[in-house]
């Protein structure tokens, strides 16, 4: 780790101000990814502002505004607490499941909801400073593009970056159309729809998100929905637990009789951002919730996939995973 000053923030306003003043400052919340990257010399902040004491960990119903009837998760709430909160388990089991699919018990006890959104890719070329990586050091090239890219993207990658985004939580949030509430140095709060929060690499892969430096994630808002009875988070990985996804699928359905009124599908492990499978969703609306229709939807989504040298399997795996996740969703988590 490079030397840094450590400051323990006591209120959000001064914390944001401190951050905004120093382009090399970072917030420290759970630290599970930041310290990991600092030890690898990938992240090199000169100042850490510890925001873990800020009072931003409530989980509460939203009582007014467009998302009335939904719930709000504090940005500094721990992943464990979000996953186990009765409101979340009752109304957003998809989110609980996605959180519980990620990392380990210890890490979920440390990691915060806001911090989880800002996880960086686990691309090994990003992690090893001796390797070229446009995300870590723009202009050096992408080590994975023509290197070992089994774990990498099949959607939306660019010649500059083929990394995938690692969070499970954000995949569920994407399916649930969540909003990210951020506060800037001038004290203003705004809501960024999760779909606009993340971005594809394009020619600026160093930017993971559209969150500018100097803003703090204060909360995540979940709109009210009718998916709670029919949702599933499927995570396919190289070992049974404690591994990043090869492919993951957050699937949620709202049905009337056996007809699909609304479908939400988001994928992890396939792109630089949580991948909302809009084509598959469109295929499903108004159709019967049948295996055949799930397959048609999966085919529609995966038709656009562009695999790299070592990850062609993700196209087939993604296809099967969409079908399976939808089946699990309608069967209440059972195959």
């Amino acid at each position: 780790m490079r030397p840094f000053t450590y400051t323990r923030a006591t209120d959000a306003t001064s914390a944001i101000k401190l951050l905004a003043e120093n382009p090399h400052a970072k917030f420290l919340a759970g630290g599970t990814n930041l310290l990991d990257l600092m030890k690898e010399d990938v992240e090199r902040p000169t100042a850490l502002i510890d925001i873990s004491d800020l009072d931003l960990n409530d989980i509460k119903p939203i009582t007014a505004g467009v998302n009335q009837g939904g719930i709000s998760l504090g940005g500094l709430g721990k992943n464990t607490d979000a996953a186990n909160h009765p409101l979340v388990r009752q109304h957003y089991p998809l989110l609980s499941q996605a959180i519980l699919a990620g990392a380990s018990g210890q890490i979920r006890n440390m990691a915060t909801n806001g911090g989880n959104l800002l996880q960086r890719t686990r691309c090994p070329y990003f992690y090893e400073v001796a390797m070229p990586c446009n995300k870590r050091e723009p202009g050096t090239g992408c080590g994975a593009r023509d290197g070992i890219n089994r774990m990498h993207a099949i959607f939306g990658w660019s010649e500059h970056c083929v990394a995938v985004y690692p969070s499970d939580l954000a995949v569920a949030l994407t399916a649930l159309d969540a909003g990210v509430i951020v506060r800037s140095a001038n004290g203003q709060q705004r809501r960024i729809p999760i779909a606009d929060f993340y971005r594809l690499p394009g020619d600026e892969p160093e930017k993971d998100t559209n969150l500018p430096h100097g803003e703090l994630i204060t909360a995540i808002e979940l709109p009210k929905n009718r998916f709670a009875n029919q949702s599933y988070y499927l995570k396919v990985r190289d070992r049974a637990s404690y591994a990043f996804a090869l492919v993951s699928v957050a699937a949620a359905l709202e049905t009337e009789g056996n007809t699909i009124k609304q479908a939400r599908i988001a994928m992890g492990g396939v792109a630089h951002k949580p991948w909302r499978a809009l084509k598959a969703e469109q295929m499903l609306v108004g159709k019967e919730a049948t295996e055949a229709n799930f397959k048609l939807a999966a085919d529609a989504e995966m038709a656009d996939a562009k695999p790299l040298t070592h990850n062609a399997f993700k196209v087939e795996l993604g296809n099967r995973s969409i079908v399976l996740a939808l089946r699990m969703a309608v069967n209440g988590g059972k195959a």
Partner: peptide, 14 residues
């Protein structure tokens, strides 16, 4: 490229 225990998968409990 598999230089950490996140990349090199030894079996877990599960």
């Amino acid at each position: 490229v598999t230089r950490s225990l996140a990349d090199y998968h030894v079996p877990t409990h599960l």
